[in-house]
Structure formats: C-alpha cells, structure tokens
C-alpha cells in the first residue's frame, strides 16, 4: 500500500501580514495602515508636472515583491518600508522608512 509522502515540512520563518515593527515587535496587520508604493518616498522635489504625474499616479503594480509604505497607526506611528509579496502576502523585510531615507542620503 502506498503511504503518504513525508510530512515534515521546513518551517518558513516569515510573517504573512504579521508585521515585525522595529519599535513594537510582531503585530497583526490590523494595527497598521497601508499607504501605497514605496515610490512615494521619492518625491521629485523641484520636479516638473511630468515627474509629479509619474510620482502621484503611475504604479508598477507587480504581482510579486512590492516595496510599500505602512504606518503603525495603532502603535508607535512609525512609517515602515516593507517588502511584501502581494500574491503570497509574505513579508520579507521591514525597516523604518526614516532610516532607509537617511542611509540613501
């Protein structure tokens, strides 16, 4: 008689929609509010109308990893830069947007 395949599955260390806030720790996503693409970090200060059209309206809208901005509104108010797969909802990276921006500078 055929037996079921081996059951032991590698446990993936991830949060799917549980967000590891750098300040507050692991929380349900209902504590956070989504803004949109992390592209919104790159405001074209001093740019022209075309640059703002792109910034405000146009989105890559990928099916895989999306880099995006969430705010911990029911927690520390921090804005977070999150890498999330928008098909599986797996979150692979959470950083403070502030830090990211300062490093880039």
């Amino acid at each position: 008689m055929m037996r079921a395949p081996a059951l032991v599955q590698i446990c993936i260390e991830n949060g799917n929609m549980r967000i590891e806030c750098p300040h507050c720790g692991d929380r349900d996503h209902r504590e956070f509010e989504y803004l949109g693409s992390a592209k919104l970090l790159e405001r074209p200060n001093g740019g022209d109308a075309a640059a703002y059209h792109d910034y405000v309206y146009l989105r890559k809208n990928p099916t895989g990893e999306n880099t995006e901005l969430w705010q911990h509104v029911m927690g520390c108010s921090a804005w977070l830069h999150i890498v999330r797969n928008v098909t599986t909802h797996e979150i692979t990276e959470v950083k403070l947007a502030r830090d990211l921006k300062e490093v880039a500078r």
Binding site: L40, R98, R105
Partner: peptide, 14 residues
C-alpha cells in the same frame, strides 16, 4: 496627523 508623520519620516527625515 498621518500626513505630517509621512512628510517628516518619509520625505524629509533630515
């Protein structure tokens, strides 16, 4: 409030 925090943390953290 959320908008101000966005501007302060995401646009102009300097």
């Amino acid at each position: 409030m959320s908008h101000l925090e966005f501007c302060a943390q995401c646009l102009w953290p300097e």
